[in-house]
Amino acid sequence: MGALARRVRLPSRHQAAVFSTSPPGSKQVTVTFIEPDGNEVRATGEEGTNLMELAHENDVDLEGACEGACACSTCHVILEDEVFDGLPEPTDEENDMLDLAFGLTDTSRLGCQVLLTPEMEGMRIKLPSATRNFYVDGAKPAHH
């Protein structure tokens, strides 16, 4: 089973997913994702779309291993201070998963739990970058 033995929970619980339906007359909101390598992707979605869905629709390199069920932290995104402060508090369940996120910051959220609002127009969303240590312990791999 491997590390994903951790998936050995009761399967198919989409209890926390927030794939909301948009109210009539909802607005289009445009934001910019910043990928770990600095590449920027502009994405437009309807108000109420969650950031993970929006990223996936626009081929942004954001994972979503549990399909938005708030059961992993692979859709971790970093928001701007003022946007973060304007959002409702994360639920206990989201905080449980954020605790396990890689490179957690003070303005980290799970993409699957944050819904687009008109106030987010122009927002910049950072994807966390891994610390990429190619050579550990100072050891250099010998090739051939």
């Binding site: 590390a3 998936r7 549990c66 992993c72 932290s73 891994a130 990429r132 240590n133």
Partner: peptide, 12 residues
């Protein structure tokens, strides 16, 4: 480690 840990590992 959990899925997130393993994912970072896969990136590396």
């Amino acid at each position: 480690g959990v899925i997130a840990t393993t994912m970072q590992d896969a990136y590396r």
